[in-house]
Design a protein around this nucleic acid. Structure first.
Lengths: 216, 216
DNA sequence: ATTCTAAATAATTTCGAGATTTTGCTATAT
DNA sequence: ATATAGCAAAATCTCGAAATTATTTAGAAT
C-alpha cells in the first residue's frame, strides 16, 4: 500500500527522470492501478505537481507532461543562472568553513562519478547517480545563502529544467567539459571570489542557451 | 453558484488583501457554506494555494494562513529585487516603444491614485485601488522581459510579499516617499539606463529589508 | 468526397458518507 | 498542583458512485 506522499514523490521522480514521455497524458484512472489507490488520490498529487510546473493542467481536459521547448529551456537556464549566482554569492559571504566543507564533499562525489562516466563505455547504470549528485552539488552551492525562499524557488526551477532535459542529457557528450567546469566553480567559490563564481556558473550553463541541447 | 476557478481566485484575493488573519485556520467544512459547494472543492483550491506559498498545509492538520515573519519578508523582498531588476533590464533591451507606453500609462494611473491618497484624510476607500495599481506598475516593468518563467515566478513571490504586508501597508505613512520612487524608476527605465533602474528598484524596496515594516 | 449533426462512448469533476487521525476534556494518580 | 491515560468530540482524509463535460463514431445532407 502506498501513502499519499509516496504517490507524489514517485510521480515527481518519474516526471524528472524519463519516466514519462514529453506530452504524455496522465490519467488518474490509469495510474490508480499502479499505486493501488483511488483516482482522487492520484488526482490530488497531479494537482500539486501542476502548481510547480511539472504537469500541465487544463480544465475538463486533464493532465499532461509538458512538451519539450527550446524557449522554455532557455528561460529555465536563465533563471538558474540568476538564482544560483545570487545564492552562491550569498553563501560565499555567509557560509564559512562548514559550507566550504560540504561543497568540497559534494564536488568530490560528483567528480568521482563524472570520471567514471568519462572512462566507461556504457554509462547507463550511472545516470541516476549522476543526476542526483549533480543536483546535490548545485544545491550545496546555494545552501548557505540564508534564504529558504530562494532555495525553494531554485528547487522548483531546477526540477523543471531537469524535466526538459530528461531525454537529452543521457548521452554524456558534454561530460569532459562538465568535469572542468564543476571544478572551476568549486575553485572560485573556495577563493571567495563572488564575481568569478558568478561568471563560471553562467559559463557552465551557457550551453543550454543555444537552443541546441534538445536536439536528438 | 460558484465555479471552481471562482473559489480559487476568491480565496487568493482574500489571502493577499486582509481577508483572513495571519495564522488563521482555513477549514474546508466551514468555507463550503460561503461558496455553496462541497468541502472537496474548497480542499482542492486550498491545495493549489498551498503550492504557491499562500497557504500552509500540514498532513492531517489542515490548512492555515502563514504567520507574519520579518525574516520571510526580507527574503521575499530580496527575491523581488532580484527578479524585478533582471526583468526590467531585459524589458529595457527588448521592450521598445510599446513597452515604454504601457509603463508610462501604468505609472500615470498609479501616480494619480498615490496623489489622491497623499491629499485625502481617509484613504480607506482607495486601498484596493492602490494595491492593484501598484501591482500593475511593477508587473508592467518586467512585462517585456521575454520570459514567461520569470514573470510567473515573480507573480508567485509578489503575492506572498503582499500577503505578508496585508495588515501593515494600510496606513500609507510611506506614500510620499513612494510617489517619488515610482517616478524615479520610470525615468531611469525610459532613459534605458539598466544600472540606474536596478539601483532604484533596489532603493524602492529597501525599506522592507530593515525588519521594521511589519511592526504595528 | 466533405461537412454537419446526433448519438454513443469515454474522460473528468463533484459530492457526501464512512474511515482514520487529531484534539479537547475529564478523571485519576502521583 | 501537575501529569497521565482514557474517552468523547471534532476535524481530516479516502473513496467510489453519480453528474457533468469532452471526444469519437456513424449517418445524413450538401
Amino acid at each position: 500500500m502506498h501513502t499519499k506522499i509516496d504517490i507524489y514523490s514517485e510521480l515527481r521522480k518519474r516526471l524528472t527522470s524519463n519516466g514519462f514521455d514529453h506530452g504524455a497524458k496522465l490519467r488518474a484512472e490509469v495510474l490508480r492501478d499502479e499505486f493501488k489507490c483511488s483516482a482522487s488520490a492520484v488526482r490530488e498529487a497531479l494537482f500539486r505537481l501542476a502548481t510547480v510546473g511539472l504537469v500541465n493542467f487544463q480544465e475538463q481536459r486533464g493532465f499532461r507532461v509538458p512538451q519539450r521547448s527550446g524557449q522554455k529551456l532557455i528561460e529555465l537556464t536563465h533563471m538558474r543562472v540568476l538564482l544560483e549566482s545570487e545564492g552562491a554569492a550569498m553563501s560565499i559571504r555567509n557560509g564559512g568553513i562548514a559550507w566550504e566543507a560540504r561543497l568540497t564533499a559534494a564536488h568530490h562525489k560528483l567528480s568521482h562519478i563524472e570520471k567514471r562516466i568519462h572512462a566507461s563505455e556504457d554509462s547507463s547504470g550511472l545516470i541516476d547517480l549522476w543526476f542526483s549528485s549533480e543536483h546535490e552539488f548545485h544545491q550545496t552551492l546555494i545552501s548557505a545563502c540564508g534564504s529558504e525562499t530562494l532555495k525553494q524557488t531554485h528547487s522548483v526551477i531546477y526540477a523543471q529544467f531537469r524535466q526538459q532535459l530528461m531525454k537529452a542529457d543521457r548521452k554524456f557528450n558534454f561530460i569532459s567539459e562538465n568535469i572542468r567546469q564543476h571544478a572551476d566553480i568549486l575553485d572560485a567559490a573556495l577563493a571567495a571570489d563572488e564575481i568569478l563564481t558568478r561568471e563560471r556558473i553562467s559559463d557552465h550553463l551557457a550551453r543550454h542557451l543555444t537552443g541546441k541541447t534538445l536536439e536528438d
